[in-house]
């Protein structure tokens, strides 16, 4: 366990040593502050557009940072010939795979939480009203709830958990650039078309091969759209139930386990 922790710590340090995080942070900050300064037709305090832009940016950058970090871990260890040194220590191959994944997730999560705090601060400032955030469930009066702010963040952390495990698992099979591209394309495709894949698979006008592929994608790939609570958060709908949160936590854990097992199986077969 301490070996996994030590590996993870290294990755958290790595993300804050690289320029990528700071570039994303500055970009998010500049766009958010600029967007919050906009005033439309002399009517102030419109915040939902700001939330839309802010959440889109921080979700996007958090995913990119996490995927790129997770995807380069194993290939860079191989390239720098440090993998053999690491595995010569009392560190099992599964601990190596788990350590790399947990480190990538924690680094991505730390970046996301920093972005998210900035986002909440800017939104709060723009709203200029103490009623913006409310401990209670949101009402149609417009107050947003801390519960939804928490739920949106928690579900996105689960999203990072799955995407980090996917990129981490793929890194034992693919080169860094191929892994980053495939992971991000799958992420975007599933997020965008995931819910509709089943109906594509049922359409007779679609070629059989595409029908089968759509069905496979629908049932076997993780549905990242499950973790996107932006619509509820931005438009002040009711929070999701605790039962659903528990289910989604289990869903994320299962998928992470599957991807890590895939990575571990490959590493086990590889002679270093």
């Amino acid at each position: 366990m301490s070996a996994i922790g030590a590996l993870s710590k290294l990755l958290i340090k790595e993300i804050f040593r690289k320029k990528d995080f700071y570039v994303a942070l500055i970009l998010i900050g500049v766009i958010l502050f600029y967007a919050s300064s906009l005033n439309f037709y002399h009517v102030g305090n419109a915040v939902r557009y700001l939330m839309e832009i802010g959440l889109m940016l921080i979700y996007l950058f958090s995913v990119i940072l996490t995927v790129s970090l997770a995807a380069r871990q194993y290939p860079s260890e191989i390239q720098n010939r440090t993998c053999q040194v690491l595995l010569a220590k009392p560190l099992s191959r599964f601990e190596f795979v788990a350590g790399k994944f947990i480190g990538s997730f924690l680094a991505g999560a730390a970046s996301f939480l920093i972005f998210y705090l900035i986002f909440l601060g800017v939104t709060w400032h723009k709203a200029e009203t103490p009623q913006l955030f409310d401990m209670a469930a949101p009402s149609h009066g417009g107050a947003l709830s801390w519960i939804l702010a928490f739920q949106a963040a928690y579900l996105f952390l689960l999203n990072l958990w799955v995407i980090a495990s996917m990129a981490s698992g793929f890194s034992y099979y693919l080169t860094t650039s191929a892994n980053v591209s495939i992971s991000l394309v799958l992420y975007v495709l599933i997020n965008t078309y995931g819910p509709g894949l089943n109906s594509v698979g049922a359409q007779h006008a679609v070629p059989v091969l595409f029908q089968i592929m759509a069905k496979i994608f629908y049932y076997f790939l993780p549905h990242f759209e499950f973790f996107d609570l932006r619509q509820r958060f931005i438009h002040a709908w009711e929070p999701v139930s605790g039962g659903l949160l528990l289910f989604l936590t289990a869903y994320a854990l299962v998928y992470a386990f599957i991807f890590l097992i895939l990575g571990w199986m490959k590493l086990e077969k590889t002679s270093l």
């Binding site: 819910p195 089943n198 629908y218 049932y219 549905h223 759209e225 499950f226 509820r232 289910f247 989604l248």
Partner: peptide, 13 residues
């Protein structure tokens, strides 16, 4: 139609 759609219905409004 299936459990994935059911979860989506509970997440999305």
């Amino acid at each position: 139609s299936d459990w994935i759609a059911q979860v989506n219905d509970r997440v999305k409004v």
